[in-house]
């Protein structure tokens, strides 16, 4: 509890935090709002995008792209502690190294919860205004996608946390995080068989928020072997635990 209180003190008064969060909210609202005018096979998606219950699936897929921003925020928060030497001061003053890492893990949980609540509010807002069906059953029909999104956001941020503790410099850590999630792992995916690469971390995290309309695409081409969201939760939790443990190990074994 004490750990969380201290983290809040640091984060809530940090202008950079508010700038990144404002960017997160603003860009996501814009994308959600304008995605209804996207053209798919010559047809505008239209307001049907906001129909319950599939809205939850579509919105969590949109939010998926913004996990990168949350990851960058986590990297900034952690590498700051290295450049200000405040991590070392906290270990001097009365904290174990494990607690120092756990504090940041709690921050990722908090950010993921914030992102999920934001998505819930956006979903209810757009859904109640535009959805044809606003019965309780429809509204809460596929709301479990929000929980998949939560796990995914935690996963992305834990990967970012790992790179931040590994590299300790914000610029390089951000590059490594983006390079791994968007270039290196996707290249590996092409090289190896689908039956194996579906268990790789970024693929697993991605499977939590499947592309809307994937079933239609699958009908036209050969179906992908990606895990269903419900099935991806277990390996995702495994990777999260692994990344947290690796971060703890890194911080415990090195000089600060």
């Amino acid at each position: 509890m004490n750990l969380i209180k201290t983290e809040l003190r640091k984060i809530l008064q940090y202008p950079t935090f508010w700038v990144i969060m404002a960017t997160y909210v603003l860009l996501q609202v814009l994308l959600i709002y304008f995605s209804s005018s996207f053209m798919v096979s010559g047809q505008s998606l239209g307001k049907s995008l906001y129909d319950f219950p599939n809205l939850w699936m579509r919105f969590s897929y949109i939010a998926y792209f913004f996990n990168l921003l949350l990851g960058i925020l986590v990297i900034v928060l952690i590498t700051d502690e290295y450049s200000y030497r405040t991590l070392r001061q906290q270990v001097i003053d009365g904290r174990s190294r494990t607690e120092a890492v756990l504090a940041k893990f709690y921050v990722t949980l908090g950010l993921a919860a914030t992102g999920t609540i934001f998505l819930l509010i956006m979903g209810l807002l757009f859904g109640l205004i535009y959805s044809k069906d606003t019965s309780i059953g429809a509204i809460f029909g596929k709301i479990d996608y929000l929980s998949y999104f939560f796990v995914q956001a935690v996963g992305y941020m834990c990967l970012a946390m790992f790179f931040a503790f590994l590299i300790r410099k914000s610029g390089l850590a951000i590059i490594a995080f983006l390079a791994w999630s968007k270039i290196v792992e996707p290249i590996i995916h092409y090289q190896i068989d689908d039956s194996i690469d579906r268990f790789m971390p970024m693929k697993v995290f991605g499977s939590l928020t499947p592309t809307p309309g994937q079933e239609i695409i699958d009908g036209l081409t050969s179906p992908t072997l990606a895990l269903s969201p419900a099935w991806a939760v277990l390996p995702a939790l495994f990777y999260i635990a692994l990344l947290v443990l690796a971060s703890i190990l890194l911080v415990r074994l090195r000089d600060l």
């Binding site: 209180k5 640091k10 200000y84």
Partner: peptide
Amino acid sequence: NFYPYLTAKANLQVVADTKQ
């Protein structure tokens, strides 16, 4: 070693948390 963007008092609050 302190957070540059926090006030002197806020910085000491962080320290006080850590030291209980």
